[in-house]
Design a protein around this nucleic acid. Structure first.
Lengths: 339, 339
DNA sequence: CTGTTAGCGCGTTCAA
DNA sequence: TTGAACGCGCTAACAG
């Protein structure tokens, strides 16, 4: 079997406590003894059992990360960046993928992270009960999505400002019939789509454009959903000359739908996305760029800092910069519109 | 604090052992006592401490997943699917993102999963030493990449057949100057790019085409790398009329490079990818489709079966189906080639 | 600076 | 069917 702490202690001719102190870099061990122990431990291939040490110390050196749909670019990228920060600091990551309602319910009722993690990073927006459940863990909490919430350190962007810049861009190009492929309107307590919709309506009002319900469709934050939504918009009696998609993946689905309808972008229809997806550049998508990996890394760092200095002041909300990236899917409307 | 097993025992008027047995569904507890205990536990919000129970039992109900670059579509998708299978079976997932050489080295020397996981799923191809390190954990091992390896259950595809079908497609269209954007040729012991390269050379030989080293460039499995590689190929004295990219992400980078050079696809240059990325459809990319999520889910299932029935026969290698998907980035070469 | 003692919260014998 | 005793491997508090 694998070596235990007493094996190292015996081989080094010291007590188990000394080995423990030496290996964890705690003070109170002479340099030579420490070096000796390190050598013996390395030779025996000794690693302290996390179960045992966390049982004894109460610290787990593990961070719980809860996410919906890891396969989605946005979440995968955030997770990737956060994981790097955590593991560089010696923390492991316990991942919970809560895409399905059952998985989500199971997680929040059983709360398998209880006593298993030192902190939680949430990539999803919990509702009131879920928030309370997380707070009951008694560990630092952070999130990279949604607005400020009590008990959480939230690293996000100004969704309204971002969406406004996208829609305003279309207005400035001269579009009047501006559609929107919105995010999931489902039971998720997701403020993002709401904020972006508010921004959309706000800019239309500002420009004196009457909103048309037939020009808004739900794209469920997926490529396929975006395609369906765009198809729906194109079926309107007076289809849009420009569309704001609340995510790049939906925007790409919209592009696919347009291609299938033999409509040209941006000649017939302009499209703006949101995220600056890794592949947005490939398809020439105009979009609102946000620092996705940056948000994951920053949230991770803030969590680690809370762990290191529990008493230090913590920002409740950090806002990262956004910017409109102009590419090739937007242009002024054609004189007479599509068809 | 959170309730411990003795709290439940006291409240239910039984001993801790009985609570333990009752809650884990072990035999030897009367139905009424079991129901009573379940009620009390639920009311107290009791969940057994994973640290304590794994220390006592040796089982962790945790699976370690090691991956490079979770942010990459392929790995994110595999991970997503695998996680769903694991969590549905009551297992947690410990994620290790080993993108950087330092992270990778740290992981394999310290082996933080020792005594922490019941099994390991590897999304990367370990070299000999790394394989040995994983085997030394003494737990079931599975992988979704590369070829068969001792000690591992590998769920993969026939890389050679897949690459051959892609290159043969180009040959059949009439192309003679066929380039390749290959995968990382770095220190990773990654048999995939080697297999795909072998297939490429094999098909060329079969067609009586002399391979030209100037028509092969390394794209590092990234979009940016694919763009660089394509740019390199275009700088050749006689550039290719068709290109096989070893991944869709590199193919998309190649498309971007072509667009920047004002070359049209497929009129000037044909492009074939590999993976059938979620967005391949959006850009109309012809590619070799493989069941990515399917591989993750299947590997996870095989791992769980090994945990349930340690003595059952296990397949060492499972091959999933592939197929060439024809879209719009491939066509016969123009009579006189580009320029 | 180092060793000894006493748990951390469970699961698992063994008796009853 | 149940309970008491023990130990999983480690860290923390206390001596020395």
């Amino acid at each position: 079997m694998t070596a235990r702490i007493t094996d190292v202690a015996r081989a080094a001719g010291v007590s188990a406590s000394t080995v423990s102190r030496a290996l964890r870099g705690r003070a109170g061990v002479s340099d030579e003894v420490r070096a000796q122990i390190a050598a013996v431990a390395a030779q025996l291939g000794y690693t302290a059992s996390r179960s045992a040490s966390s049982l004894a110390s109460g610290r787990t050196y593990t961070i719980g990360v809860v996410a919906p749909y890891i396969g989605r670019w946005f979440f995968g990228t955030v997770l990737d960046a956060a994981e790097q920060v955590f593991s560089a600091a010696g923390y492991d990551v316990l991942l919970y993928n809560l895409g399905s309602p059952e998985a989500r319910k199971r997680f929040f009722t059983k709360l398998p992270v209880r006593k298993r993690v030192d902190a939680v990073l949430s990539l999803l927006i919990p509702d009131e009960d879920e928030s309370a459940a997380l707070r009951s863990l008694g560990v630092p909490l952070a999130s990279t999505v949604g607005g400020p919430r009590p008990g959480f350190t939230v690293v996000g962007i100004d969704d309204r400002a971002g969406a406004e810049s996208a829609v305003r861009h279309l207005v400035n190009l001269g579009h009047r019939r501006i559609g929107m492929v919105s995010g999931a309107s489902g039971p998720l307590h997701w403020t993002t789509p709401v904020d972006r919709r508010t921004a959309y309506l706000h800019v239309l009002a500002e420009a004196g454009i009457e909103p048309d319900p037939a020009l808004v469709a739900d794209g469920d934050y997926t490529v396929d959903g975006g395609e369906r939504a765009m198809t729906e918009l194109l079926a309107a009696s007076r289809p849009p000359t420009a569309v704001f998609a609340q995510s790049d993946e939906m925007a790409m689905g919209a592009l696919r739908a347009l291609r299938r309808h033999r409509l040209r972008v941006p000649d017939d229809v302009s499209v703006v996305g949101f995220d600056d997806h890794e592949l947005a550049d490939v398809v020439g998508l105009t979009t609102v760029a946000q620092p996705v990996a940056g948000q994951g890394a920053e949230a991770a760092r803030l969590l680690l800092r809370q762990l290191d200095e529990p008493d230090a002041e913590q920002p409740g909300h950090v806002q990262m910069p956004i910017r409109l990236v102009l590419r090739e899917t937007t242009a002024p409307p054609r004189p007479r519109g599509p068809q």
